[in-house]
């Protein structure tokens, strides 16, 4: 009970600045109303959308628990790719990846480029960065758009 209260409190405190920021900032064209404008905040809606995309496009190789498949497909938990620089991470989805060691381990399979929209990539990466034991800021569609524009 005490534990639950503390967690709840923690969640409230954590959510407050984002919620405030969202209220303060006018949402352009009302389009991204559901998304927090503040950099890095993660909402349940983003996570739900991300999970659907993950299930359809990534689960085959990286598995339901994000643990990957030994020697074939890398895990998505706490890798330097998932938690590191967002540009590099976004490029993995835009371009695919092959012949790269992941945190010192070789993987035999290939990661195909993903035919997803900016928003879908943002959602799935936000989901990945906040699942499987990961905790990191959200990836925004605008960030994906910028990387896509300068890609190649």
């Amino acid at each position: 009970m005490k534990f639950a209260l503390v967690t709840l409190l923690g969640l409230l405190i954590g959510a407050t600045p984002a919620a405030l920021a969202q209220q303060k900032k006018p949402t352009p064209k009302g389009k991204t109303a559901a998304k927090p404008a503040v950099s890095g905040a993660v909402t349940p809606a983003m996570l739900a959308a991300g999970k659907t995309i993950y299930t359809q496009n990534c689960l085959t190789c990286h598995m339901a628990d994000g643990g990957g498949v030994e020697t074939m497909n890398p895990p998505l938990s706490k890798t330097t790719w998932v938690l590191g620089e967002k540009t590099r991470l976004i490029k993995v989805l835009l371009n695919g990846l092959q012949d790269q060691d992941i945190d010192g381990e070789p993987y035999r399979n290939v990661m195909p480029a993903q035919d997803l929209t900016d928003q879908q990539i943002a959602d799935v990466l936000t989901y990945v960065r906040n699942s499987f034991g990961n905790k990191a800021s959200a990836v925004k569609a605008a960030e994906v758009k910028a990387v896509r524009a300068s890609n190649k």
Binding site: N109, P112, A113, D115
Partner: peptide
């Protein structure tokens, strides 16, 4: 996997 132009890519 299946000799696709782009290996394992949808379509």
């Amino acid at each position: 996997n299946s000799c696709q132009v782009k290996d394992r890519q949808k379509g």
